[in-house]
Simulated scan of single mutants.
Amino acid sequence: MYTDGACGPEGAGAGIVLKIPEGEEYNFALRFSFPVTNNEAEYEALLSGMRVEKYLKVKELSVYVDSQLVANQFNEIFEAHDESMQKYLKLVQELAVDFDLFQIMQVSRTLNKMADALSKLAALTFSHFKKEIWVEEVKVKSIDTDGVSATVEEDEPSWMTPIVEFLNTGTFANRFNRGKKN
């Protein structure tokens, strides 16, 4: 599991990447509705990922974080002086005993890019978006195509129906001005 926390002027969030031995990957972006410091965001990301892994009944968990503080506090290289850091560390230690094997390793930010990107996305204010974001890979430049590169199939008419009809037939049926003369 890879985790990262981010804190900025617009808010705070976490990125969690779960990789299972069979090769599948699950990505999560969490936005925090409460104020946190950057170190607290790192711990929140870690704890959220641990709870997911526990729910999935994972027995052996290796965690990769780019937070030197989190990794070294857990591995007893650094001491947690701040009261909130002590509380976070205690929660991690309590959850860690639920796994047969649990370890935290610090990695460079370049090895934690996906969790980092997810945490930064979650930290942005984007309340005008729906909760789900679709990401599609575009493989060819728009200027390098010879027409339509994909076909859209609809289960029922939507705002895209006239556009799809135009792309398929070359004619535009204006559904909103039916019966009116232009």
Results as ranks from 00 to 15, higher is better:
Phe34His: 00
Phe34Arg: 00
Phe34Glu: 02
Pro35Glu: 06
Val36Glu: 02
Val36Ala: 04
Thr37Ser: 10
Asn38Thr: 02
Glu40Ser: 13
Glu40Phe: 01
Glu40Gly: 06
Ala41Asp: 06
Glu42Lys: 11
Tyr43Met: 13
Tyr43Arg: 09
Glu44Ser: 11
Leu47Phe: 08
Ser48Tyr: 08
Gly49Trp: 05
Met50Lys: 01
Met50Ser: 00
Val52Ser: 01
Glu53Leu: 13
Glu53Asp: 04
Lys54Gln: 06
Lys54Phe: 04
Tyr55Thr: 02
Tyr55Lys: 10
Leu56Ile: 02
Lys57Ile: 00
Lys57Ala: 06
Lys57Asp: 04
Val58Phe: 00
Lys59Tyr: 11
Lys59Gly: 07
Lys59Arg: 14
Lys59Ala: 11
Lys59Val: 06
Glu60Thr: 04
Glu60Ala: 14
Leu61Lys: 03
Leu61Arg: 05
Leu61Ile: 03
Ser62Arg: 08
Val65Ala: 09
Ser67Ile: 02
Gln68Val: 07
Gln68Arg: 09
Gln68Glu: 13
Leu69Asn: 12
Leu69Gln: 12
Leu69Arg: 05
Leu69Cys: 08
Val70Gly: 10
Val70Arg: 04
Ala71Asn: 09
Ala71Asp: 10
Ala71Lys: 11
Ala71Glu: 11
Asn72Lys: 12
Asn72Thr: 07
Phe74His: 14
Asn75Lys: 08
Asn75Val: 10
Asn75Phe: 14
Glu76Lys: 15
Glu76Cys: 15
Ile77Ser: 14
Phe78Trp: 15
Phe78Asp: 11
Glu79His: 13
Ala80Val: 09
Ala80Phe: 10
His81Gln: 15
Glu83Cys: 08
Glu83Val: 05
Glu83Lys: 14
Ser84Val: 15
Met85Glu: 10
Met85Gln: 13
Gln86Ala: 09
Lys87Val: 09
Lys87Ile: 10
Tyr88Pro: 06
Tyr88Asp: 10
Leu89Met: 05
Lys90Gly: 03
Leu91Lys: 12
Val92Ser: 05
Gln93Gly: 04
Glu94Arg: 03
Glu94Gly: 04
Leu95Glu: 12
Ala96Cys: 01
Ala96Met: 01
Ala96Val: 02
Val97Asn: 03
Phe99Pro: 02
Asp100Leu: 07
Asp100Gln: 10
Asp100Ser: 09
